[in-house]
Deep mutational scan, measured.
Amino acid sequence: MSIQHFRVALIPFFAAFCLPVFAHPETLVKVKDAEDQLGARVGYIELDLNSGKILESFRPEERFPMMSTFKVLLCGAVLSRVDAGQEQLGRRIHYSQNDLVKYSPVTEKHLTDGMTVRELCSAAITMSDNTAANLLLTTIGGPKELTAFLHNMGDHVTRLDRWEPELNEAIPNDERDTTMPAAMATTLRKLLTGELLTLASRQQLIDWMEADKVAGPLLRSALPAGWFIADKSGASERGSRGIIAALGPDGKPSRIVVIYTTGSQATMDERNRQIAEIGASLIKHW
């Protein structure tokens, strides 16, 4: 058993032996400061991975655009179909130039040979490839079927209504393609630790998130040596930015963190910096 498999397999085991986890309101002070700095709403939640207890939250039940963070949920739905014998990670999917949409750094290189379902999930999560996400959405029946999958998990909040890139429109008060921090954190925890997916599929999902290559300026920039993080970021119109993550010290995840912001006029660099500073406060007061 690899170190990674050891880590995921023991998450339920550690729940019975973990020390009490204490919240630190200092992080919420930073979240509120980020709102002031960005001139935008910020949603935040910090969840204990083992118990599911909410440690801190700010606007946990307000809607925010999901942006590309939905791609983790999408690959969770794909893995659920794999577990049920309805899909194979090794199945190759062929597509054409007409299928390519904006920001497809991986799929645009494989027009001649296509990509496997496994490769598409990797591209969608680690590189946020939009065509990969659309191709995967097609395999499960489209955005409405992803919403149905989430409903069956008990998440009646999170919804996907459109495809890439239209889902990134982020119109104020538009509930399409949105979630709430509390709903996203709970759903992510179920995917990573619950019985919905097999152990192998849970491991695969967290491996893809751990290999994320496009979230460096966010929480990863504040991470001390030896800490673990598996994450997925997102960005969209109207100053929207977000990240969902499982992270913790000693090389294993122990908390879920979800951060969303929307409605800012700030630059992408400034949005990144504010999220990184929230992460730094979280780690300092861990």
Rank of each mutant, 00 (worst) to 15 (best):
Q4A: 13
R7S: 13
L10F: 13
I11A: 10
P12M: 13
F13I: 14
F14Y: 14
L19H: 15
V21T: 11
V21L: 09
F22L: 15
Q37R: 13
L38H: 06
R41N: 08
G43I: 01
Y44H: 01
L47M: 15
L49I: 05
K53S: 12
I54G: 03
L55A: 04
E56T: 09
S57Q: 13
E61A: 12
E62Q: 08
P65M: 05
P65S: 06
L73V: 11
L73S: 05
G76V: 01
S80I: 09
G85K: 11
E87Q: 06
E87N: 02
E87V: 07
E87F: 06
E87H: 00
L89C: 04
G90W: 12
G90I: 10
I93F: 05
H94K: 13
H94D: 09
S96F: 12
Q97E: 15
Q97Y: 13
N98C: 11
D113N: 05
D113T: 14
R118K: 11
S122W: 11
S122G: 13
A123G: 04
A124T: 11
I125V: 12
D129E: 01
N130D: 02
A133I: 00
N134I: 02
L135T: 05
L135S: 02
L135I: 12
P143L: 01
E145C: 13
E145P: 07
H156P: 10
D161E: 05
W163M: 08
E164L: 03
L167G: 00
N168F: 00
N168T: 03
E169Y: 08
P172R: 09
E175M: 11
T179K: 00
P181A: 04
P181Y: 00
A182T: 10
A183G: 05
T186N: 13
E195G: 11
T198G: 10
S201R: 06
Q204E: 11
I206F: 15
V214D: 04
G216D: 10
P217E: 12
L219F: 08
R220I: 01
S221D: 09
P224T: 04
A225G: 11
A225I: 10
A225S: 14
K232R: 05
S233Y: 02
S233F: 03
G234A: 02
S236M: 03
S236C: 06
G242K: 00
I243V: 11
I244Y: 02
A246E: 04
P249M: 05
P249I: 04
D250Y: 12
D250E: 13
P253N: 06
P253K: 06
S254M: 11
R255H: 03
I256A: 03
Y260L: 08
Y260T: 00
G263S: 10
S264Y: 05
A266D: 07
A266E: 08
M268E: 06
E270D: 09
S281K: 11
